[in-house]
Simulated scan of single mutants.
Amino acid sequence: MSQSLINTAGLTEDQRMMREGVLDLLSRHLPWEKVRKMDEAREFPHEAYNALAEAGYLGLFYPEELGGMGGTYKDIAVFLETLGYYYTGIAQAVTTSAIYAGMHVAKFGSPELKQEIIPKIISGQAKLALGMSEPGTGSDVAGIKTSAVRDGDDYVINGSKVWITCAHVADYIVAIVKTDTQARHNGISTILVPTKTPGVTIRPLSMLGRRTTHANEVFFDNVRVPAGNLFGGEGQAWKNIMKALGLERLGLAAISSGHCFKITEYARDYARDRIQFGKPISQFQVIQHKLADMMIMSETARQMTYRVADLLDSGFPVVQEASIAKIVATENNFKCADIGMQIMGGAGYSNEYDMQMFFRDSRVGPIGGGTSEIQRNIIAKQMDL
């Protein structure tokens, strides 16, 4: 691919070096022709994931006392934007383990649990998945039905989860469960479940996009885990989930921001090569304006993402800003893919080209990690509406 459209002005020297290092590593361990094959085979990118872990990048998310590098939120944003730019599947693989599931352990786990689990995540020895959504409760987290009942020194878990990303490769599931079935928000707790525990069944789901890191159904049938695996306080999961959302939404926005640039570059390069009426279609103003709109959307997504990172690094709460960034970045991501497909015409709609994969992979953004509608509800509440 020709010259990148991402401007690295404003990044520190370390951040620029990290970006170059990550792209170099991925080009070696996840070459692009392999991505297409893995997408079709629905194969998890183990080699690239392990290479990122071995190079120490998964330590970026965690403090030094847990064996991490203690990266800033801006560092994390740059890292995830780079992964999203290269391939959203590897970005989703990393964030599922390191942020969506692993960060619950890092923030709210007992000292023993942290010391046991976090170094394993950093080294790539353990992958985690977050088990939250259920067949009857997607956005309504407080309405979950999966129960964890105390029995002596154990909890016994029964119920099911759905849309659980990367559960098929996870060693542990951070499961959101009901410890008080009569309560809503105050009845939910967080418990760590090793996936090899008897009674845990994981069934892959066939998804439209992000096929290498697809979703799964998870079933718990009298699953018995030690009481010490419940962490963050019984009935405290809702409050803890709320505390973790800023970083989660930053991650989702960063991945989508990077993907916007990738799509824009791909469409630009195609337009330069595609000859119609005796000249490249990139010389027609109608195509130039479409590409300019894609560039505007890419840069806007990026600026929203970095704004959230800057606020988090300064210690400010980011409820409204994180929701805005998540909406803008994920919706712009899909719009870029849609316009890119239109620029490419029949080629964009063909499986011979990558645009159809970008289109499929981008569509989950406004759905996963809190839908755009839920984000707008949050913004409305912040506006006192």
Results as ranks from 00 to 15, higher is better:
residue 7 N to G: 02
residue 10 G to V: 05
residue 10 G to F: 11
residue 10 G to H: 05
residue 12 T to F: 04
residue 13 E to V: 12
residue 13 E to Q: 14
residue 15 Q to H: 01
residue 16 R to N: 06
residue 16 R to G: 00
residue 16 R to D: 03
residue 20 E to Q: 14
residue 22 V to I: 15
residue 23 L to K: 13
residue 25 L to R: 06
residue 27 S to Q: 14
residue 27 S to L: 01
residue 28 R to C: 07
residue 29 H to S: 09
residue 29 H to A: 01
residue 30 L to M: 13
residue 31 P to D: 11
residue 33 E to M: 12
residue 33 E to W: 11
residue 34 K to W: 03
residue 35 V to F: 12
residue 35 V to D: 05
residue 40 E to F: 12
residue 42 R to H: 11
residue 42 R to F: 07
residue 44 F to S: 05
residue 45 P to N: 12
residue 47 E to S: 11
residue 48 A to G: 14
residue 48 A to L: 09
residue 50 N to K: 15
residue 51 A to E: 15
residue 53 A to G: 07
residue 57 Y to M: 05
residue 57 Y to V: 02
residue 59 G to D: 08
residue 60 L to I: 11
residue 61 F to Q: 07
residue 62 Y to Q: 02
residue 62 Y to G: 03
residue 64 E to S: 08
residue 64 E to Q: 15
residue 65 E to K: 14
residue 65 E to M: 00
residue 67 G to C: 06
residue 68 G to L: 04
residue 70 G to I: 04
residue 70 G to R: 10
residue 72 T to Q: 11
residue 73 Y to W: 12
residue 74 K to C: 05
residue 75 D to G: 13
residue 75 D to P: 09
residue 78 V to W: 13
residue 78 V to R: 12
residue 78 V to T: 14
residue 78 V to D: 06
residue 79 F to E: 12
residue 82 T to W: 12
residue 82 T to E: 13
residue 84 G to W: 10
residue 84 G to E: 06
residue 85 Y to Q: 04
residue 86 Y to V: 02
residue 86 Y to N: 12
residue 87 Y to I: 01
residue 87 Y to V: 00
residue 88 T to E: 10
residue 89 G to T: 03
residue 92 Q to W: 09
residue 92 Q to V: 13
residue 93 A to W: 11
residue 93 A to C: 12
residue 93 A to S: 14
residue 93 A to V: 06
residue 97 S to M: 03
residue 99 I to H: 04
residue 99 I to E: 05
residue 99 I to P: 03
residue 101 A to H: 08
residue 102 G to I: 08
residue 102 G to V: 09
residue 103 M to H: 11
residue 103 M to C: 00
residue 107 K to F: 11
residue 107 K to V: 02
residue 108 F to Q: 05
residue 108 F to N: 01
residue 108 F to R: 02
residue 109 G to S: 06
residue 112 E to I: 01
residue 113 L to P: 00
residue 113 L to S: 04
residue 113 L to K: 02
residue 114 K to S: 02
residue 114 K to N: 03
residue 115 Q to N: 13
residue 115 Q to S: 14
residue 121 I to D: 01
residue 124 G to Y: 07
residue 124 G to H: 07
residue 125 Q to A: 13
residue 126 A to P: 00
residue 128 L to M: 13
residue 128 L to H: 09
residue 130 L to D: 00
residue 130 L to K: 02
residue 131 G to E: 03
residue 131 G to K: 03
residue 132 M to Y: 01
residue 133 S to P: 04
residue 133 S to Q: 02
residue 134 E to P: 07
residue 136 G to S: 14
residue 136 G to F: 13
residue 139 S to F: 06
residue 140 D to H: 09
residue 141 V to E: 08
residue 143 G to H: 04
residue 143 G to C: 09
residue 144 I to D: 00
residue 145 K to W: 05
residue 146 T to G: 03
